[in-house]
Simulated scan of single mutants.
Amino acid sequence: MTDPKTKQTTPEEADKNRIHIKNMVCPRCIMAVRQILDRLEIPYLSVELGEVWLKQPLKDQQKITLQRELESIGFELLEDQRQQLVEQIKRSIIELVHQENNELKVNLSDFLVEQCHHDYSFLSKLFPEVCGITIEKYFIHQKIERVKELLAYNELSLSEIALLLNYSSTAHLSAQFKSVTGMTPTQFKQQEGGMRKPLDQI
């Protein structure tokens, strides 16, 4: 399969062959989008989180049909560049936080600048304008969802989870967890993890 990033095309041509999709947050999302593209007989080069590289630009009717199919399973075609960038920020944070065994010993602002190729001051202003929440709060909420996931697995102690997610102490983790959820990690475990949110709803 040809790599769209190495295929010899002009930047303008390459951009026409790329579409952005909102709410793709996990490998199952990639599989679902591939199934739609195959069913609609839309040829593609690759499907990644939030992004599809097509072999050729979509025709108007194809775009309408694809939009309808995507919306039926909770996705959405994005054509606004501001929204595309916000989705890229979200995807980058989700991949950083939820990647298995990934210790969060990185500087968030430096990480996002590297991933999104924009100054952090621009990103940090854009994100709340579109989402109504700061990047930092979104990052914290994703970390708390990851804590919930790890608590539900019951394989790591709270101190091990704190170390994995780069909290300064278990007390810091517990305080942030209670601030976001209204309960302590212990209380959450007693409720058998019934308050986890889908990642695309955070």
Rank of each mutant, 00 (worst) to 15 (best):
E145C: 00
E155L: 03
Q62G: 13
H20N: 09
H172Y: 05
L78R: 05
R18C: 07
L49A: 04
K63T: 12
V33H: 03
C26Y: 01
L70Q: 08
D60C: 05
G74M: 01
R28S: 11
L70A: 07
I140H: 01
K63D: 06
D15T: 06
Q187G: 14
D3H: 09
R91A: 10
I93E: 05
F177K: 00
L77S: 07
S109H: 12
P128G: 12
K90F: 08
R196S: 15
F111L: 03
I19M: 08
E51A: 02
L123H: 11
D3T: 03
N154I: 07
I94Q: 03
I89F: 01
L126F: 04
A32L: 09
Q83F: 15
E13R: 12
N17S: 11
A162S: 15
M24K: 04
K178D: 04
D200F: 09
K178W: 04
M1F: 13
Q61D: 14
I73A: 06
E192I: 09
L151K: 02
D15V: 03
L54W: 11
R91D: 08
T65L: 11
D15N: 08
M183N: 06
T181I: 13
L150E: 14
K143N: 00
Q190E: 13
Q88Y: 04
K197H: 09
Q67G: 12
E136V: 08
Q201M: 12
P4G: 11
L37E: 13
R196G: 15
P198R: 12
Q187M: 13
E41S: 14
K148P: 05
S124L: 04
Y138S: 05
L112Y: 06
H141Q: 15
L173K: 00
K16P: 02
C26W: 01
K22L: 10
V52I: 10
L199A: 12
L165E: 00
D38P: 04
I93R: 05
E87F: 07
G193Q: 06
S121R: 15
V106C: 03
L151A: 03
N154P: 06
D80C: 09
V130N: 06
